[in-house]
Simulated assay, not measured.
Amino acid sequence: MTYQANNIRGQWKRAFCSATLVGFGGIGGICGSLVFRAQDSPKYHPGLYACITASLVIILIVGLLSVRFYYDNQKQARGELVIEGGEGGFRYTY
């Protein structure tokens, strides 16, 4: 949540994005209760594979966004890009 909150400008936009992220976290909890099935006991391989896959997807997304934010900050420093409305010298964190 800190990653998205630091990279979104504006109180209402940040609040909406935080609420959306929390909502998807709740959906993740529902999915988690469905992928760990009783018939997969005692090792629960499908559930573990689903959790590992979801974690790897998140790591990939954060990595890609960090690269994008780095290049956008470089463009902003050169004056080629205005980030999130641009007033006040807003820069992404990564």
Score class of each variant (00 low, 15 high):
Gly10Arg: 01
Asp40Ile: 06
Val57Phe: 12
Pro42His: 08
Ile30Ala: 13
Gln39His: 12
Leu34Cys: 08
Ser41Ala: 13
His45Val: 15
Ser18Thr: 15
Gly32Asp: 07
Leu48Ala: 09
Arg78Ser: 12
Val35Glu: 14
Arg14Asn: 09
Pro46Asn: 10
Ile61Met: 14
Gly89Lys: 08
Glu87Cys: 02
Ser66Tyr: 01
Arg37Cys: 06
Ala19Val: 04
Ser33Met: 09
Gly26Thr: 14
Tyr3Asn: 07
Ala5Trp: 01
Tyr49Glu: 15
Arg91Cys: 12
Ile59Leu: 12
Asp40Ala: 03
Asn7Thr: 01
Tyr71Met: 09
Leu64Ile: 15
Lys75Thr: 02
Ile59Trp: 11
Ser33Phe: 07
Ala77His: 01
Ser18Glu: 02
Ser41Phe: 12
Cys31Ser: 13
Ala38Asp: 15
Arg37Ile: 13
Cys17Ser: 11
Gln11Phe: 12
Tyr70Pro: 03
Leu65Gln: 13
Leu65Ser: 06
Tyr92Ala: 03
Leu64Asn: 01
Glu87Pro: 01
Ser55Glu: 14
Asp40Gln: 02
Lys43Pro: 09
Gln39Phe: 09
Arg14Phe: 03
Pro42Leu: 06
Cys31Arg: 12
Tyr70Cys: 09
Gly89Val: 05
Tyr70Glu: 06
Gln4Pro: 04
Arg9Leu: 05
Ile27Pro: 04
Lys13Cys: 00
Val67Asn: 08
Ala15Phe: 01
Pro46Ile: 15
Thr20Leu: 14
Val22Glu: 04
Gln74Thr: 04
Phe36Cys: 09
Trp12Arg: 10
Arg9Tyr: 06
Ile30Asp: 06
Asp40Val: 08
Leu64Thr: 10
Cys17Val: 08
Tyr94Pro: 00
Phe16His: 04
Leu48Val: 14
Val35Pro: 13
Ser18Lys: 10
Met1Tyr: 11
Phe36His: 15
Gln11Ile: 05
Asn6Glu: 00
Gly85Leu: 03
Ile61Asn: 14
Gln76Phe: 05
Cys17Tyr: 12
Leu34Gln: 14
Thr20His: 07
Ser55Met: 13
Ile27Trp: 09
Tyr92Val: 05
Leu64Tyr: 02
Leu21Phe: 12
Gly23Met: 02
Tyr94His: 05
Phe36Leu: 14
Gly26Leu: 07
Glu84Arg: 02
Ile83Ala: 00
Glu84Cys: 10
Ala50Ser: 13
Met1Pro: 06
Tyr49Asn: 11
Gln39Ser: 08
Ala38Arg: 13
Arg68Gln: 05
Val62Cys: 04
Pro42Phe: 05
Ala50Phe: 10
Ala19Met: 08
Ser66Asp: 01
Cys51Asp: 13
Ala5Gln: 06
Ile52Trp: 08
Gln4Asn: 06
Lys43His: 11
Gln39Arg: 11
Gln74Glu: 03
Arg37Lys: 14
Arg14Thr: 02
Glu80Cys: 01
Gly63Ser: 07
Leu56Cys: 12
Ile27Asp: 09
Gln39Gly: 05
Thr20Trp: 03
Ser33Leu: 11
Ile8Trp: 04
Gly86Arg: 00
Asp40Lys: 01
Gly89Tyr: 03
Val67Leu: 03
Ile52Gln: 14
Ser66Ile: 07
Arg9Phe: 01
Gln76Glu: 10
Gly28Thr: 10
Gly25Thr: 14
Phe24Lys: 05
Ile8Phe: 00
Ser41Met: 11
Leu21Met: 05
Lys43Gly: 12
Gln74Arg: 06
